[in-house]
Amino acid sequence: MRSKGLTTMRILKALAVAATVTLGGLTSPALAAGEAPPPPDTRFSFDGFFGTFDRGSLQRGFQVYKEVCSACHAMRQLSYRNLLDIGLTEEQVRALAAQFTVTDGPNDEGNMFERPARLSDRFRRPFANEQAARAANNGAYPPDLSVMVKARPNGADYLYALLTGYKDPPAGFQMQDGMNYNEWFPGHQIAMPNVLNDGQVDFADGTQATVSQMARDVTTFLAWAAEPELETRRQMGVKILIFLAILGGLVYATKRKVWADVKH
């Protein structure tokens, strides 16, 4: 019985190792020609299995998005009401939403009309459609940022690296017209110019608006926007795993008892 158990264990262990190696290989995307190296690991408040979003960073990040990114990038999955989750009060969010006008209608005369945004409205989009966005951006389409962190490998690290990765092209590097050199963008030529400069925004909490600070904060905000359920999910996960550990112990003890009088 002992040796049989050991064999089983050994087979399972071998399978587990094989699976880990293979799956690990699958998830690290291949590096083809013209691709950027994987971004360096940046420490964020939401890292690890128990990390949470730093509320101050989220609010500053939203400010960076609002004052800088939102000129070109939409976040169509988000509504103003979602901002209640980053630690703003209902008053604040209502006032914030009211700064934007959205199109509503048709009214009784059949016309569309403008009105201040409400909590239930989606974030205002900078362009009516993709064609308008391309026309205004030299043919490039500023992608929607709602789930950007989930849509790139190592999303948060990548975005932070990208925002802080603008450099002069190395000597001899052929740049196309209107493109910008970025260390971490695949192919190194990105249509988006460097938009973050020291002191670009005024943080209400007195935090110094350095480029790295703004990049960190807006990345945190985008990570939250992509996975607003992250904190709830991890909390629930801890509870459920504890429950399963106890249940597992009980079930295993019961199994031992049931099988105690049977040789096998």
Binding site: F243, I246, L247, L250, V251, A253, T254, K257
Partner: peptide, 10 residues
């Protein structure tokens, strides 16, 4: 008793 506890947990 063990079975009962296990069943209750499940």
């Amino acid at each position: 008793f063990l079975k009962l506890t296990t069943a209750a947990f499940a």
